Computed example of a mutant assay.
Amino acid sequence: MAGDGEYKRDQNYITTRITADGRDGYPVEPGRYRLVVARACPWANRASIVRRLLGLEDALSMGIAGPTHDERSWTFDLDPGGKDPVLGIERLQEAFFKRDPEYPRGITVPAIVDIPTGQVVTNDFAQITLDMSTEWTAHHRDGAPELYPDGLRDEIDDVAEKVFQDVNNGVYRCGFASSQEAYERAYGKLWDRLDWLEERLATRRYLVGDTITEADVRLFTTLVRFDAVYHGHFKTNRHKLTELPALWGYTRDLFQTPGFGDTTHFPQIKEHYYVVHTMINPTGIIPSGPDLSGWLTPHGREELGGRPFGDGTPPGPPPEAERVPDPA
C-alpha cells in the first residue's frame, strides 16, 4: 500500500519458465507438472480457461484449492483428507518452501508445481498462459485455437496491458484503496477504460481480430466477476455489467463458449471475496445475489461476425472432476 492510500500489487513472481527446449531446466513433459488453481481467483481462472481451450488436460493435471485461505496460503480443503491427491500437500505454500525455504512473497495461484520434486516452478500468471499457447504446442488437442497468433501479438499485448492496468488490477485498486483520493483515481481510470471497451466491442465481436485470443481470456475473468463481487464489494458501482450492452453481450458470448463458463464457479468466487477480505467485509456475510439466470440468455453477438475458434473447433466437455455448477 502506497503512502497516498493507493493499492500497489506485488508483481515479483517466480519467473522460471517451462519451455519446449527446457532452457530454464524445466522442459515441457506431459504428466510431469501440476497446475494449481483456485476457482475463485481471476488470475488462476485464466490458466484454467487456456488449458481447456488448448486441450491440455491430459498433459497438465490440475489441482484445485478451496475458495478461502488464511495468511499462510491456499489450502486443498476440497480434496479428501485436505490434501492434494497428486502433490500430497495441504497448503500450496509447501511447494513454494520446497523451492525456497525462505520464500518471502505471497503464495499465489496459478502456480505450476514440478511433481517429482514437489517444488513450485512458476507463479508468473501472465507468462503461464502465453507459454501454454507457444511452448506446449506438441500437446495441444486437434482443433486447438491460436490464442496468441504471431501476426496479432503486438496488438494483443497492447490491449492486454491496458486491460490489466485499468480493469484487471483496476478493480483491486478501487477495492483496496485506503484513501478517498486513491479510490476516486482508480475508479475514474476503471470506468474510462470500461467505456473504451464498451465502444470497441460495440462493433467487433472480440477484442483483437475475429477470433478468441489471449486478450479476451484476460478481460473475461474480471468481467464475469463484476456484478457478483466487484460492483458492491470493491465499490466499482457506476453501472452493473448487465447495464452495459456491448460488454454484457460480449461476456455472455464468451461465458456460453466452451472453456469459459464451464470454468467459472460463482459460489466459490463469492465465498472467497466476501470471507477472505475481512478488512472490507468484517461480518463475512456472503450476499445471496445477484440473479445469475441471465448468463445463459441469447447474446446476439453472432451478428458481428467472427469465428470463436478460427479454423479450429470447440473443446469437448470438461473432465467430470473439473465440472462446475451451472448458474442458477
Results as ranks from 00 to 15, higher is better:
A138C: 08
I115F: 06
A138F: 08
Q127D: 09
T117I: 06
D114V: 05
W136M: 03
H140D: 11
V113H: 10
L152M: 12
A126Q: 12
D114S: 07
T129N: 14
P101M: 10
G143A: 06
A111Y: 06
D124M: 05
D142F: 07
P116D: 11
H140L: 05
R153P: 14
D142L: 09
D150I: 08
G88D: 09
Q93W: 11
T108H: 09
D131M: 05
I112R: 08
T122E: 00
S133E: 15
E102N: 13
R91H: 11
V113S: 11
E135W: 03
G151P: 05
I128K: 01
D131W: 02
S133V: 07
D131R: 02
R153H: 14
P110S: 07
P101A: 13
P149K: 02
Y148S: 15
V120W: 09
D124C: 07
G88Q: 11
D100M: 09
Y103A: 07
T108D: 04
I112T: 08
R105E: 12
Q119H: 02
F125V: 04
R105P: 10
F125C: 11
Y148A: 15
Q93I: 14
Q127V: 04
V113A: 10
G118E: 03
V109R: 00
T134M: 11
G151W: 09
A138N: 14
T134N: 10
T108C: 10
P149S: 07
E94H: 09
D150W: 03
F125N: 15
R105C: 10
G151S: 09
Y103F: 15
M132T: 00
D142G: 13
E146L: 08
P101D: 14
L87V: 04
L92D: 00
Q93T: 14
T117Y: 04
R91A: 11
P145T: 02
E146H: 10
P149V: 01
V109A: 01
W136D: 00
A126C: 10
I89A: 00
R99I: 08
F125H: 15
D124K: 04
Q127F: 04
E94I: 07
P101Q: 13
R153Y: 13
D124L: 03
I107Q: 02
V109I: 04
L147D: 08
R91M: 07
P145F: 01
I107H: 07
N123M: 00
I112L: 13
Q119S: 08
Q93A: 15
I107G: 01
V109K: 01
L147Y: 09
A138G: 12
T108G: 04
T129L: 06
D84S: 02
K98E: 12
E90H: 13
A95V: 04
T129R: 02
A144S: 04
R153N: 14
D114A: 07
R141M: 02
P110Q: 06
G88L: 13
R141K: 01
G106Y: 12
P149E: 10
H140T: 08
P101G: 12
E94R: 11
L147E: 09
P85T: 02
A111S: 15
N123Y: 00
R105Y: 12
D131I: 02
D84G: 02
T134V: 06
L92E: 02
S133L: 05
A111G: 12
Y148I: 10
F97A: 14
A95Q: 03
I115T: 11
D142H: 13
L152A: 13
